[in-house]
C-alpha cells in the first residue's frame, strides 16, 4: 500500500473529528482497563481497592479447581477446534483458489456463513441435532461445533495469503513432476504459512471465547471458561471474575501481538 499519504496533504482532521476520535478511543479502552484495579481490590465485592492492593483473588483463581479445570477444558477444546478449522479451512481455501470457478466461489461464500448467521440460530439447531447424534455435552461435539464455526477465519486469512501467491510456482512444481501432495507440502504451504498461523490464532480465540453454543450443547461434563464466567456474572459477581478477566485480556493481547509480529515479518 502507498502508506505515506500523510495528514491529508497538510490538512489534518479538525478539532471536532479529533474530539470524537479521542472520546471513542477512551470509550473503547477505559472500561477494559477498569478490571485491572478491581482485580487487585482488598474488598469482598467488585470495587476499586480501598486501603491496599491485594493479590488474594489471583490466589483464589489459581487454587480453585473449578476455574483451573474450566481453563484446561477450554484450552483443549480450543486446540482441537483450531486443528479442525486450520486443516479443513486451509485445504478448502487452496482448492477454491486453484479451481477458481463460479462453483468454488459459491463454496467459499458458504464457508463464511458462520460469520453471518447469528450463533443463537446455530445453537438451537445444534441442540436438537446433537441430541439426536448423541453428541450433547461431549468434548467431541463442542470441538466440532467450534471447529466448523472457526473455518471462516482461516478461509479469510489463507485466501488473502494465496492472493499474493504466484500461480506459476504451482505450475512449475507440477511441470517438474511433483505430485499434488509434494506441491502442497514443499511449495504452497511454506509460502502461505503466515496466513495459516493468523487464521489459527483467530480460530483459537474464537473457540476460547465462545459461549452461546456451549450454553446449549454442554451441561455437566463440559464446563468451559466462558460458561464459568457467565454463571459468575449472573450469580455472584465475585472479584475473582476480575482476575479472570485480566488473565483473558492478557492472553488476547499476547496472541494479537504475536499475529502482528508475524504479519510484519511477512511484509518486511
Amino acid at each position: 500500500m502507498n502508506g505515506g499519504h500523510g495528514p491529508g496533504g497538510g490538512h489534518g482532521p479538525g478539532p471536532f473529528a479529533r474530539g470524537i476520535a479521542w472520546a471513542t478511543a477512551l470509550y473503547l479502552l477505559l472500561p477494559l482497563s477498569i478490571v485491572l484495579p478491581v482485580s487487585l481490590t482488598d474488598q469482598r465485592f467488585l470495587s476499586l481497592p480501598k486501603h491496599d492492593i491485594s493479590w488474594q483473588y489471583y490466589h483464589n483463581l489459581f487454587t480453585s479447581p473449578l476455574w483451573l479445570d474450566a481453563m484446561a477444558q477450554s484450552f483443549w477444546i480450543a486446540c482441537a477446534a483450531t486443528a479442525i478449522a486450520v486443516i479443513c479451512g486451509t485445504l478448502c481455501a487452496i482448492g477454491c483458489w486453484r479451481l477458481a470457478r463460479r462453483s468454488t466461489e459459491v463454496i467459499r461464500a458458504l464457508m463464511l456463513l458462520p460469520l453471518i448467521i447469528p450463533s443463537i440460530v446455530y445453537a438451537i439447531g445444534l441442540y436438537r441435532y446433537f441430541a439426536w447424534a448423541g453428541l450433547l455435552d461431549t468434548f467431541l461435539g463442542v470441538a466440532l461445533a467450534h471447529g466448523v464455526t472457526g473455518i471462516p477465519y482461516v478461509i479469510v486469512t489463507v485466501s488473502t495469503a494465496l492472493a499474493a501467491f504466484d500461480p506459476r510456482l504451482e505450475q512449475a512444481s507440477r511441470g517438474m513432476g511433483a505430485s499434488l501432495r509434494q506441491t502442497l507440502a514443499w511449495v504452497i504451504l511454506p509460502r502461505i504459512m503466515p496466513g495459516i498461523v493468523s487464521g489459527g490464532i483467530f480460530a483459537f480465540i474464537h473457540s476460547w471465547d465462545e459461549l452461546l453454543i456451549v450454553l446449549f450443547i454442554a451441561s455437566r461434563n463440559v464446563y468451559t471458561l466462558p460458561r464459568r464466567i457467565w454463571n459468575g456474572i449472573n450469580e455472584n459477581l465475585d472479584p475473582t471474575m476480575a482476575a479472570v478477566a485480566v488473565l483473558l485480556i492478557g492472553m488476547t493481547l499476547a496472541l494479537l501481538l504475536l499475529d502482528m509480529a508475524l504479519r510484519r515479518r511477512r511484509e518486511g
Binding site: 505450475q171 512449475a172 507440477r174 511441470g175 517438474m176 513432476g177 505430485s179
Partner: peptide, 27 residues
C-alpha cells in the same frame, strides 16, 4: 503435466522464493 517429464522455463522464471538456488535446482 507431472507425468510428462518435460523441463520448462516459465515466463518470469517461477523460481521458488523460499528455497535457495541449489534447492530450486534440486527440486
Amino acid at each position: 503435466p507431472e507425468k510428462r517429464d518435460f523441463g520448462m522455463v516459465f515466463q518470469g522464471y517461477a523460481l521458488f522464493p523460499h528455497m535457495t538456488v541449489a534447492e530450486n535446482v534440486a527440486f
